[in-house]
Design a protein around this nucleic acid. Structure first.
Lengths: 208, 208, 208, 208
DNA sequence: CATGAATGAGGATTCATTCAT
DNA sequence: GATGAATGAATCCTCATTCAT
């Protein structure tokens, strides 16, 4: 599915508003006004508000696919190096798209059958398969220990990032970082979270 | 604030529906029908839908306050024992109230000013203070290492639990646990998560 | 119809609120709150909101009946003296009960069939009969001229008083009387209006 | 502000219903049904019921501005002639728009701050200024006497017309004019009132 | 005699969508 | 292809009244 320029503008606006006010809290008029287009355009281009949400998801997940598969083939890196790259990759992607991350969270929480949450579930299962392969590789190579739960591992990484995105205001206030610009804070948090998760995973994967 | 039986019934229904369909996705009619009461009763008892949400929050957080403070005084336990109790406590509380947990998440994500998210922020700050004290105690006693970030620690525990609650369906399917009843699955997950976080925290807190 | 103390309190409150916010703009809850009684009392005591309005009217018109009839018998006064007394009487009564006057106006304007406006119409017809007699008396005695229209005469007196009550704020501002208290302004206006109407009527009734 | 045809139809209907049932007594559904349009159109076109009322006022006052100012310049007429024209003008305008007149009355009586009553007050003040100028002119030319109160004068004219509009039914019945059509009665009343007020004003303005 | 609780109808407004142009 | 106008359904809330106690 290819979207034209106007459609992309609508998708961007929708992403922003959905993440701030939720799907039901956002009216198509809000989106139309913010995007500077006619209300009827949304039905016209996407069919319905629901379909617009799916379009948002479709468009925004294009960049979201984890590049695990390609790395699995690679034999020049240790598995731990691969894991670290993966962590960096994940943290960067989501910290740079907090709005979309929020939408994904909300969709999973509300979990409407037939909606976006089904797509997310599929995505998660696919990612799990990759992660399992990676863990297996690490174990075969003797880098990782036995009894690693990939689901809990994923929950750890995703959960921490989620909490930091959701609790951005909290983090800023309790660490007295009000003087930082949005971009600065983002960079600061990205580095910190990345480092932290890497340390954590090192322990999870290797310690006995 | 004391709520009577009928009010509590409304609150319970509201909690459930808000967690499934979100605040805006839930109409007061939905709540009234589900609770078997007249629509007007909601305004009558709570003033508005917004106020009802606050009542839900008020009622459900009664049991939610972490019992850190009381434990801080205790001198018969090691700090790590205290931390483990805290983890058990937290995991139990939220895994037994997944609906409310979802509401808290949604409220934090959408983050309406003047709404429930402000109350949550206050709660988190209060908890942070307690956690900081606990860490300090552990460090003074030589149990814990230096350079522990309490905010990341909290994000880790909260994030993992969140992910497991949100990803309950995912967890069930990929682990082939469809044969378990809801209660059985709950118990299974609670134990697993608790154990996992404890291990994680042991490493975070003590390892050099 | 005799009203007990509580009923009278409700009637007074209702009169005030009806005059400020109109009948439809006033809710029985408003009245109940303002009067410090239970909402159900209004239906309980008066049957309905509509009936309450009629009770207000009934109670407040008790003092409103013009004392024309009694004066007609009097042979010691000239008719013009009688007219002047009547004017004083009317102006005083309405300027001292502006709220009720407003209600009467609104009721006449909206003119619901079967409502209070019917009662007002009856009252006006009764008053007209008296006024006609008085004019006749004046004409027989040679005090008044021919061709006096009693309806226009009444409209003149009632209309001027109405305008002054309605336009109280206007009058105060354009005459720079902001320094006067409510009572002072009332007295000032009463005298002025009374005098003005008397002059006017003198001309209307006697001039050729 | 220019209103399109449909808006004008809504405004006309609203004017009628507001004058009959009052603002609060009229529901937007009433207006929509009577005007043969969808309920949502009212919000669509005017934003709210309140704004619709303001639109009614705005539209209907277009023709309502007294043409005093233009006449003040005129040197070919005596001031009394000007006054007479003014009276004719006023009586005609309001007797031909009794509905709107009623709305103005109700709005002044209930006197909601920030509502239409503020606009009416402004209008009255503007008119007062003009009337004052006219009186001054008459006095300078020696046509009028001293000590004329313009506010009472206005109250007289406006009050009489108001009473006749409000008491239209009363007037009809007591004068046995049931055989007249609405238009005939209107013409009859207009002439009568006009003549009466002119006579009255002649006396007020010139008599010592 | 009095009242807090409860109700169903109706209030204004906003919604996503469709239609005519 | 694009849009302002229009719609019916649904939104939350308040209404006057009644009921059970």
């Amino acid at each position: 599915m290819e979207f034209n320029e106007k459609q992309l503008a609508i998708i961007d606006t929708a992403e922003k508003l959905f993440s701030i006010k939720g799907f039901d809290g956002t009216s198509v008029r809000d989106i139309a006004n913010e995007a500077g287009i006619n209300v009827a355009m949304i039905s016209y281009y996407f069919g319905s508000k629901e379909k617009l949400m799916e379009a948002v998801f479709e468009e925004k997940t294009k960049k979201m696919r984890l590049k695990v598969e390609s790395m699995l083939q690679d034999t020049t890196m240790t598995t731990r190096q691969k894991v670290n790259i993966l962590i960096d990759d994940y943290v960067d992607k989501f910290m740079l798209q907090p709005e979309f991350h929020k939408i994904m969270l909300i969709e999973q929480i509300t979990d409407k059958p037939g909606g976006v949450s089904d797509l997310i579930l599929t995505l998660k299962k696919r990612n799990l398969t990759s992660v399992r392969k990676l863990i297996l590789e690490g174990q075969k190579r003797g880098e990782f220990r036995k009894n690693i739960d990939p689901v809990l591992m994923m929950a750890t990484m995703v959960g921490i990032v989620s909490q930091m995105i959701i609790g951005r205001r909290f983090y800023k206030e309790v660490n007295n970082l009000e003087h930082l610009s949005d971009t600065e804070l983002n960079n600061h948090m990205r580095k910190k979270i990345s480092l932290y998760i890497k340390k954590l995973f090192k322990v999870i994967l290797t310690n006995e």
